[in-house]
Design a protein around this nucleic acid. Sequence first.
RNA 1: GGAGAGGUGGCCGAGUGGCUUAAGGCGUCGGUUUGCUAAACCGAUGUAGUGUCGAAAGGCGCUACCGGGGGUUCGAAUCCCCCCUUCUCCGCCA
Length: 436
Amino acid sequence: MLDIKLVRENPDKIKSALLARQLPNELSKIDELLALDQRRRALVSQSDSLKAKRNKVSDDIARLKRNKENADALIAEMKIVSDDIAALDAELRDLEAKQEELLLHLPNLLHESVPLGKDASENVVCKEVLRHQRDFDFKPKNHLELGKALDILDFERGAKITGAGFPVYKGKGATLERALINFMLDTHLAKGYEEIFPPFFVNRESLRGTGQFPKFIGQVYRASYEGQETYEADTVGRLFAIPTAEVPVTNLHRDEILKGSQLPIKYVAYSACFRSEAGSYGKDVRGFLRVHQFNKVELVKFATPETSYDELESLVADAESILVALGLPYRVVLLCSGDIGANAAKCYDLEVWSPAEQRFLEVSSCSNFEDFQARRANIRFKRDEKSKPEFVHTLNGSGLATSRLMVALLENYQTKDGKIIVPEVLRPYARFDAIG
RNA sequence: GGAGAGGUGGCCGAGUGGCUUAAGGCGUCGGUUUGCUAAACCGAUGUAGUGUCGAAAGGCGCUACCGGGGGUUCGAAUCCCCCCUUCUCCGCCA
């Protein structure tokens, strides 16, 4: 969420960000917001001065009553004042709700280093690490064929017991998945991240805090719990399956004031991730490319404003180190203004090479949100005891998501006779060195 | 699921409708005293919104905030309703 003060004082800055993000239809929202804000501020000032009067006269009434004098005239007068206040406050609540709604839907500003571009085709490839790219002397199988032949992935039974997009890992496939997760966690722990094992369900405040709500409410699975039917609206008593560990982990410090000396805070968290992927039918539907449940190891940082871009670079490097250790071909892409997510000020994607698909697959998004999430979630810090609280900068990135990583792993490490060689670094975790 | 007790500032804790500007204490910061330290004493010590003065740091004023939301009242930390949450006991359960 952006600061309403920023909107008020610098509307052009926000408008140019909207244009860069290819959102020209949103421009009118800024003017709407400015008009609302002006009206709201006028009402606040009216209401406040009436309240000041009420407080003062209430003291007078108290004094009269103590002296056993008559206060009926003042009470009658204040009755009217109170009614006026109630009317103003009702209108104010309405305006505030509308303003909040508009503000929550506005995307973040962009960092100056973000390239301008209309869509994904104009993203900038910063780095390609292709030394592990293989020349196959046979036609590489895709992960579906490999998974089926080796009996380690079962999409059909997943669809039977739950639904399409809920894969089952079996035998050495299940073990390899677990090995990957543990390898990634241990690697990040060694780099000074603290491990969190978060709840997989959160409340709506948490989703609002990290910016998934209200915009992406359709992408999130909901769970009701007993007694929920009796609540007046479906806004109460619902929990939501997390789309990423970013949500619970960033919200750990919601409504808190951190000490400057604690920063940067670096967390690593494994979680299952749940995404309904509504409206995305037709693209990347095969196998692991798009699923409703997957596993991810997430990196989350809380940093001071002046260090957050250095922290972003090291976050990307930490995520990259997994791909390097696994010996997979990959590239780093800087997202352009037309492709970057609404909450991020700057974002790098890590993409791993799929020999069967003959293209790169996204396995990580590393973003600096600056104070966008911190303002929503009210996460602040004090430089020292005496200084005023400031919003922290929040960052996160996958390190990494396993589903597409598994695709790349199986495909890149397959042999001509249909086996999978387990990468060296995973062997201590898997306790076998090949599948098949 | 049932019964009971709680949630007040950075922390502890008083406060049953107006002499509360949230008592008192602890902590922290500044000062006085002082070979040094400690103690004692004095003072300060929240967040947000808004107005005003200022080049700025900040000052002064007003408003809101006692778990969250609604209500009663001229006036609510205090009374009423709903919700969240913590603890204790009972029941059930992997």
